[in-house]
Every structure is written in C-alpha cells, then in structure tokens.
C-alpha cells in the first residue's frame, strides 16, 4: 500500500462519510428528543434517493443543460417530499404509540422501514436504477489524489447542511424547544412548548436530511438499489452511535470516522468486507463506549 493510495482512500472516505453523517443526523436528533431508534430513517434515505431519480426523470433535458440548477431542484424537491413522508410516518406509526411500552414504537418503526422498502421494491423492481450523471465526470488531480468535482460538491453540501442544523438547534427558538424537550418533555410542555409539533418537526427535518443524503449518494455512486436503505441505514446508525447519539456534531464526526474506516478496509481486505467492518465497529462501540466519541454518559447500563 502506497502513501498515495492511503491519501486517496482518506479523501474517498471523507466524501462518503459526510453523506453518512447527514443520514445520521436524523437518527441522532430523533433519539435525542424521544429516545427512539428511528429505523425508518434508512428507508427515508432510500425514498429520497428514488424520488431524486424520479425528479431527474421529470426534469429531462433541462438537467443536462443546467446540471447545477437541476441538482438543486432535485435536492430541494426530494427533501420536501421526503419531509412530508416523514410527517405521515410520524403521524401514523409513532404518535399513537407515544405512551406505549418501549418495544411497541421500535417494532412499528421497523415495520414502517420494511413497508417503505417493500413498496419501493414493488414499484421499481429488484434491479438497480441508474442515476443520471448530472455533473462533468473529469476528475481533478490534486497532488497525489484525484477528486471528482461532484464528490467535492457533495462533501461541501453535506457539511454545510450539518453546520446549518447545528446552528439551527443551538441558536433558534425551535432549536431551543428541541433541546428543552430532550432534557424533560413534561417540563417543556409546561413551559408552553408545543411538544407534539416539535417532535413531528424533528422527524421531518431528519427525513429531509436523509433525502438530501440519498440524492447526493445517488449522484456520487451513479446507481441506487431497492435495499440500499437497509445497509446504509445501519451504517448511518453506526455513525450516530460512534459520534455519540443525541449529539449533532457527533453525527458529523461519526459519519466521517465510519466513512474513512470502511474506506481503509478496502485497501487491506476484499471489497465485501466493508460490511463486516461496519458491523464490527458498531458492536465494539456499543460494548465498549456506548456514549460514543462526543456523547456524555447517557446510556444507563442494566
């Protein structure tokens, strides 16, 4: 393994890791507020990616003439639609179970995940769909590494969005309400915060971020498959746990770490080992440091 190869894998890992981080945001915010592992997040990521395919299809020739505008339209529309889907999911599958025993919302989120994935499979079939190559693919050569302009764009968009969410949670009134609910939902409600809406909004925000990640992922890899939400949902969850679940900057840190580690693994091991590496990271982190890199010690042990 040469130094060049190493640097190249770091760059690749950072790009894909920033996308993981974006999906991880949804897990981490929902967990931070309602203490629920939102399995549906992986399915929303996938739904966003497939909506992106549909939007690019509708834009047709326009997207090839104006690739950047086309991508922007796809990102925004897909985020809005998936945010709407997240609203429906929250309204139907989670809200009625707000006060149910803890296993119930977990099972219902799992069922929702499976429902969305199966619907996508029924509509599109089991074959992977090609993503339109919207931006020029001539990669830049910077010193020893090559970097496609699209990849740079993806990383920049993802990291800017995560910064935006961090700002939103820390500085705005809505963000303050979210943090208040995370501390104590009943007390927040007594202070006049509309907790139902804030929780719903958090779900929608997480879904929208997952959709953006889905479109970016499709553009980066050039194709989407009906079961991508399964594995990448788990990768993003791993990222959220690694960074410290409930912690917004943790999602970025975790995403980049998982991205770089699994990218490294491809140097030493055959490609299919990537999955095993992710599972191993997840199990090790949960067993050894369940609070993650940036998290405080919230996970009480039995």
């Amino acid at each position: 393994m040469s130094l060049q190869e190493l640097l190249q894998q770091i760059v690749n890992g950072l790009v894909v890791g920033s996308v993981y981080g974006l999906v991880a945001l949804g897990y981490t915010m929902v967990y931070g507020i309602v203490r629920l592992i939102n399995f549906a997040q992986g399915a929303l990521f996938e739904a966003g990616a497939y909506l992106g395919v549909a939007i690019f299809g509708l834009l047709g020739a326009f997207a090839t003439h104006q690739p950047l505008v086309g991508l922007l339209i796809a990102l925004v529309l897909s985020a809005l639609l998936t945010g709407g889907l997240a609203y429906v999911v929250e309204r139907v599958a989670y809200r009625p179970l707000r006060n149910a025993p803890p296993l119930a919302p977990l099972v219902s989120s799992l069922a929702t995940f499976f429902l969305i994935i199966s619907i996508i499979q029924v509509i599109t079939g089991a074959q992977p769909l090609n993503y339109p190559q919207v931006l020029s693919v001539t990669p830049w050569t910077i010193g020893p590494v090559t970097l496609a302009p699209t990849s740079l764009l993806i990383a920049v968009v993802a990291i800017l969005l995560m910064g935006g969410i961090h700002f939103y949670v820390q500085r705005t009134k809505m963000g303050k309400a979210m943090r208040a609910i995370a501390v104590n939902r009943n007390a927040a409600a007594l202070m006049g915060i509309n907790t139902t809406w804030v929780v719903t909004f958090t779900f929608m925000l997480g879904g929208a971020m997952a959709a953006v990640a889905g479109v970016l992922f499709g553009v980066e890899y050039g194709s989407v498959t009906y079961n991508m939400g399964e594995f990448y949902g788990l990768v993003a969850f791993t990222a959220a746990v690694l960074g410290g679940i409930g912690n917004v900057p943790g999602a970025l840190v975790g995403g980049l770490t998982v991205g770089v580690l699994s990218s490294f693994a491809t140097i030493f091991l055959p490609n299919q080992w990537q999955e095993a590496i992710v599972f191993a990271i997840l199990i090790l982190v949960l067993a050894l440091r369940p609070q993650g890199i940036l998290g405080e010690r919230v996970a009480e042990r039995a």
Binding site: L36, P102, E275, F279, L282, L286
Partner: peptide, 23 residues
C-alpha cells in the same frame, strides 16, 4: 457483552450480529 446495554441498543447489537453471521 450484548445484554449489558440498554433495551433499544440491544436491538441494534443483535441486528449487527445477524449481519455478521450472514456475512
């Protein structure tokens, strides 16, 4: 090691274990 973590993390741990065995 798995059963020491709290309930909802357990689901994820077992998911990871199932994934490793499949792999």
């Amino acid at each position: 090691p798995t059963l020491r973590v709290r309930g909802d993390y357990l689901a994820i741990m077992t998911l990871g274990f199932g994934g490793i065995v499949y792999f």
